[in-house]
């Protein structure tokens, strides 16, 4: 995933254990205690697409209020990325259904 530029940069707390996740099927790395939003944005610049076709979104309020960071699990469960924490093996989809 290092080829993809990241939006977020870690500046502290980097000694946490690694957690293996997938983002749209591709393996990715996060740290224990990362929110799903952090995990997505240290691995790229996008969280989801606007429901109304006006382009990519990458979260906004980061405190569970704006609801602009919804993603899905492979199982179809909807997550609010900024208030959900990663777990080993978490499979994230940035679109509601498999393409």
């Amino acid at each position: 995933m290092s080829a993809t530029p990241a939006q977020f940069r870690r500046v502290a707390e980097t000694a946490r254990p690694r957690v293996a996740i997938t983002i749209d099927g591709a393996p990715a790395s996060a740290l224990a205690g990362d929110t799903v939003l952090t995990a997505l944005l240290v691995n790229g610049r996008r969280v989801r697409h606007s429901d109304f076709g006006d382009g990519p979104r990458a979260g906004f309020c980061l405190m569970g209020a704006c609801q602009d960071c919804w993603v899905w699990t492979e199982a179809g469960e909807r997550l609010r990325a900024c208030t959900t924490y990663v777990a080993d093996g978490l499979a994230i989809r940035t679109t509601p259904e498999a393409p």
Binding site: R57, F60, C61, C82
Partner: peptide
């Protein structure tokens, strides 16, 4: 303001405090 990389100010602070991340380089 909806382009990826724009964040609410308080959110940018939370990212630093509770995630050890800055929202951009």
């Amino acid at each position: 303001w909806t382009i990826p990389g724009v964040y609410a100010l308080g959110g940018a602070q939370i990212s630093l405090k509770a995630q050890g991340c800055v929202v951009g380089a």
